[in-house]
Write a protein that binds this DNA or RNA. Sequence first.
DNA 1: CTTCGACGACGAGAATATTCATAAATAGAT
DNA 2: ATCTATTTATGAATATTCTCGTCGTCGAAG
Lengths: 224, 224
Amino acid sequence: MNILVVEDFKELANEVIDYLSKNGYVCKWANSCSKALEEINSNDFDVLLLDLGLPDGSGFDVLKMVRKTQSKMAVIIITARGELDDRINGLQLGADDYLTKPFALTELGARLYAIIRRIHGFTVNDLNIHGFNLQLQDYKVSYNKIPINLTKKEFDIFQYLALNKNRVITRLQLTEHIWGDILEVNSDSNFIDVHVRNLRKKLDKHTSLEWFETVRNVGYRINV
Amino acid sequence: MNILVVEDFKELANEVIDYLSKNGYVCKWANSCSKALEEINSNDFDVLLLDLGLPDGSGFDVLKMVRKTQSKMAVIIITARGELDDRINGLQLGADDYLTKPFALTELGARLYAIIRRIHGFTVNDLNIHGFNLQLQDYKVSYNKIPINLTKKEFDIFQYLALNKNRVITRLQLTEHIWGDILEVNSDSNFIDVHVRNLRKKLDKHTSLEWFETVRNVGYRINV
DNA sequence: CTTCGACGACGAGAATATTCATAAATAGAT
DNA sequence: ATCTATTTATGAATATTCTCGTCGTCGAAG
């Protein structure tokens, strides 16, 4: 699930992106209208998180543009209290929801979940890639209905690489995302490699894995 | 390290408390001036996180009262942008720092860390309880200089109970705090009990553990 | 084309975490 | 005081995670 976060206040953006990433969303950041439009034109996002007060104009301009072209993208408007006046009340401009600052991250999470479910139907929690089916909610994987027994770490790695398909994911990114607090983990260790190895060994039984690349000096990538 | 969070906006308070708890702070919440003063009079806090716009008055009244009596308590003021006018600029009223909403939780964490270090000197990362010394930063425990080999989970449990000494901590609290996402964990399991048991077995070798109570139907508590 | 060094793959084993079955302890009811 | 139901403690088995040593492979330099 890809999300574009349009917000000029960097700390807030970081906080939001960090939270969403940890919940399995793949995020990009834009800090202005122009950057946002640029991103939207070059990538496919499922959700747009849109702050209204941007340095080079109102987020509404972005929203209008989006609604002209990409109708399936969900838009959540973020606004300071009071900034949302009557004129635009009722979400007539085509936003799916809105949040007033300051908001709790869990609140954002709940809105997102609801919207995604509304748009994509009830089962968004499945991830299908190269014949494998990942049920994100209960950590189950199968290939052609044949269940595969992955450990939690193996599942986490598979899920994260799959969510970020076609992008190289570094070992550091995996560590930060899956293990969280980076300080607890010994960095000059090959535990990621070992988990990847074990994951591959299990997947390999079912099909060829040439799409599961090792990118030397960088990390791992799942191509689709 | 005990913190009182004075903030009437419940979602924000929850978010902050959740974050701080996960970083080893022990938090209480007050949503009004009167509740805050009540808490301050009955408990000892190291830091006061104080929102200014409260339903029954300004947080400044709380601050003034605090400065009359409890001079060693650190105070961080939380305020909406613009709410902090010139009259009170420069922290003349005795606050140690302030943050404007919206703020990033990591920013709050950094300020807290700095303030606590300023007040308590450089080494706040040791916890001493009943003869045991916990070095929080590198997961080491010792009793009379004799090192004790605890696993990470055992250390986490010991630390959390010690930080919350004299309070009963439920299994759910331990699960949420140490394992994080509660959904991943099978709740009808006794894994907490097992970790507690193993922890006790290791501590027990060095001294009597009558202060490490099991509170039937509730959880565990370390008395001091 | 060969050599060298760095990086990743791999196997095996140690350490840790979790599950499970059963025993002991506790509190309430009889 | 005894019984009973529920909660916690315990030992042991199982599963998972992480560490370590070694080997293979890739790519750059000669």
